[in-house]
Design a protein around this nucleic acid. Structure first.
Lengths: 231, 231
DNA sequence: CAGTGGTCTAGACCACTGC
DNA sequence: CAGTGGTCTAGACCACTGC
């Protein structure tokens, strides 16, 4: 049995998502919820805090707490290609092009915060959605994060999760490029087609970098969506 | 005088940023801080919560609360082109290409959540950094958000701020495109150059959409950076 | 002025860490 | 087992809203 605020926020969430409380309408007052659920008002606030953070609710002092007119789902989530495609209703697949072990290059060492000479694993693969080529990915993983290269199946993130080193935060940099011949050939597209180059570094909760990935996405078939918040 | 938790979090933040507490070291225990600041432990937790949310501190149950090894600054901030360029140490400038008033198109109405027939303001401008062309921007603003089109100076966001309608949240969609002739000519680049097309909708705190902007960025001179968090 | 969210207290017990 | 963060209570007063 989890904490009580979790029970309260789950119940509220369910009431909102099932449409029992319509967007724009207010949820019961905090004191009322405390009584209804038999918890203190502090616990209710903690539960409501979570839903406000999620963007599901909006507080107005003196007025009430309202179900937010849904803008969009969460887009700034850290998800893998596999999860991303499934969320879009497409069927993802991958083809390994190479997997190898090696020693960090100077730029990888800098990027991953590893000492020179550290071991890394390298993965190159093509990504498909519904059988159509979508992207080429080159990943470098610090070896401490993946004890055995053989245990990596289709999803790198699943393997990282299994070893307890799935990144919880990532920094992405993205720019428009033209595909060069080598990359275009691997994806079966024309040279000179516009593409997105995404450079990503993934970090553990303790701040260590574990993953560095360069992805070349086809510009004609991939949209990148992000939700931004005031800073 | 603001809330007490603010005083506590400001004091902690200052101690961290001034280097009095080194990255990786722990801050005093919550009960100790409560005594030091003469507040309750709940108030201390609220203050620490804020710094944990900011990524400055990391809690470890049973162990302590530690100053985080700084990964990166905040990147998912909602900032205008002007602010963005200044942050990068470049000098932004703009040239108005057109400003006009009109009636929403059906797709704008859908995007901005306006009734058919509503008035909107339209802005087209070229953006420069250090005199070099960077982007072409076409913005559509709901008329309720900007009472007077004449009062818009160089920055649309400054004008929106002045009228109390600056977006606090935005949804961006981004993809790679090739510049068409009209856009390439306005930016002084070659047709067929790769570019980023960013479609943005900006929302007020109450969820209303006020802004819809399409920006064509030169792919060779603009990087888009985003910080993602686990969803 | 009744009702709502915003802040705060003093104290309690639990779960986990690290010796 | 001492110390730490995690959760929770009952109650209080303040600031703001909307009539």
């Amino acid at each position: 049995m989890g904490p009580r605020y979790q029970l309260v926020s789950d119940a509220l969430k369910q009431a909102i998502e099932s449409g029992q409380i319509q967007p724009g309408r207010s949820i019961p007052a905090e004191r009322q919820l405390a009584e209804d659920f038999g918890v203190s008002r502090v616990t209710v606030r903690r539960a409501v805090d979570d839903l406000v953070d999620e963007g599901l609710l909006l507080r107005r002092q003196g007025s009430g707490t309202f179900v937010r007119a849904r803008v969009e789902k969460q887009f700034a989530k850290l998800s893998s290609f596999t999860e991303d495609m499934i969320a879009r209703g497409r069927t993802p697949s991958s083809k390994w092009i190479s997997r190898s072990t090696g020693t960090v290059t100077p730029s990888e060492a800098l990027s991953l915060g590893l000492s020179p000479g550290s071991d890394v694993l390298r993965f190159v693969r093509a990504r498909y959605a519904d059988g159509e080529s979508m992207a080429l990915e080159r990943s470098t993983i610090a070896s401490f994060a993946l004890p055995d290269i053989e245990q990596v199946g289709d999803s790198l993130y699943v393997a990282l999760e299994a070893s307890g080193h799935r990144p919880v935060r990532a920094l992405q940099k993205l720019r428009a490029v033209l595909f060069d011949k080598a990359t275009a050939d691997l994806l079966g597209v024309h040279v000179g087609m516009p593409g997105l180059l995404i450079e990503r570094r993934g970090f553990l909760a303790d701040g260590r970098a574990v993953e560095m990935t360069e992805s070349w996405y086809r510009g004609d078939s991939y949209d990148f969506v992000a939700e931004l918040v005031e800073g």
